[in-house]
């Protein structure tokens, strides 16, 4: 029983055993951290939806499974690009960081993930940059090369090479509904300076027109413009909670 012998030998020499044990624990934790980081940042992660901006389809507190490698990923913010398995498609539900997030020190995210990992997600570096970690869940409607405009809260798209405008529903095959049930009165009147009906906008290369199904809520591409592919972090493929509303997107 060689194993037992070794074990007993170690027991009788507590000093080296303890040191070795500590080394193994640290090594295990570092490997676990690396694995966790690679898994959640570059392969698969989950989100709890914080906003009602995808009503009626997705509600606040719904939990979604996000697959990352379908789209290009950017290591250390945007220094290194890993090509995606495909390009974002029209109708995809995506998670992305908002446009107005800037001045984000590149080292903050890795440091924060170490803190969160070792505190079992209880602690977050509550710097004034914390909101940079927050992500939005919305739908890609306009692809590079499209011409997009909004009329009465419905997106109209002239796809690249197309001749006429079609509605978002025609192009995505009516996969979802939008919510405009309690938009303020006269929201779409010409007198409204905040009218979100937009003129025709060409979607540039490397950019997407992203909008929530709940047209009452901002921010999205109506107010903050096109979203760069660098900010798109992954595709929502599955709602796994609540159990009774499980579905594949």
């Amino acid at each position: 029983m060689g194993f037992n012998k070794k074990y007993q030998y170690s027991l009788y020499r507590p000093g080296p055993f303890k040191r070795f044990f500590l080394f193994r624990v640290i090594r295990f934790l570092l490997i676990a951290l690396l694995f966790y980081e690679i898994l959640t940042v570059y392969i698969i992660s989950t989100v709890i939806v914080q906003s009602s901006s995808m009503l009626p389809g997705i509600q606040r507190e719904d939990r979604l499974l996000i697959v990352k490698p379908l789209y290009s990923q950017y290591l250390f913010d945007k220094f290194i690009k890993i090509p995606g398995l495909s390009n974002p498609k029209r109708g995809d539900i995506v998670i992305y960081r908002q446009n107005f997030i800037n001045n984000y020190p590149w080292y903050l995210k890795p440091v924060n993930s170490v803190v969160r990992f070792f505190t079992l997600q209880k602690k977050n570096l509550k710097t004034n940059h914390s909101y940079n970690d927050s992500i939005s869940v919305k739908r890609i409607i306009g692809l590079p090369g499209d011409i997009v405009k909004i009329k009465n809260n419905v997106v109209q798209i002239k796809p690249s090479g197309g001749e006429r405008f079609l509605t978002e529903f025609e192009l995505t095959g009516n996969r979802y509904n939008i919510n405009i049930s309690s938009l303020p009165e006269n929201w779409n009147s010409d007198e409204n300076p905040f009218n979100s009906d937009t003129e025709e906008t060409a979607v540039k290369d490397g950019y997407y027109f992203i909008i929530g199904d709940n047209r009452e809520l901002f921010p999205d591409s109506r107010s903050s413009g096109l979203v760069s592919s660098e900010l798109i972090k992954g595709k929502a493929v599955l709602r796994y909670w609540p159990f009774e509303r499980i579905n594949v997107f």
């Binding site: 004034n128 303020p184 901002f218 921010p219 107010s223």
Partner: peptide, 23 residues
Amino acid sequence: LKTADLGFFIEKILEICDSVPEE
């Protein structure tokens, strides 16, 4: 304010400010 108005208003402020303030 109506949520749609408030959301649009804040976004426009951020656009004018051209940066996200510290507080």
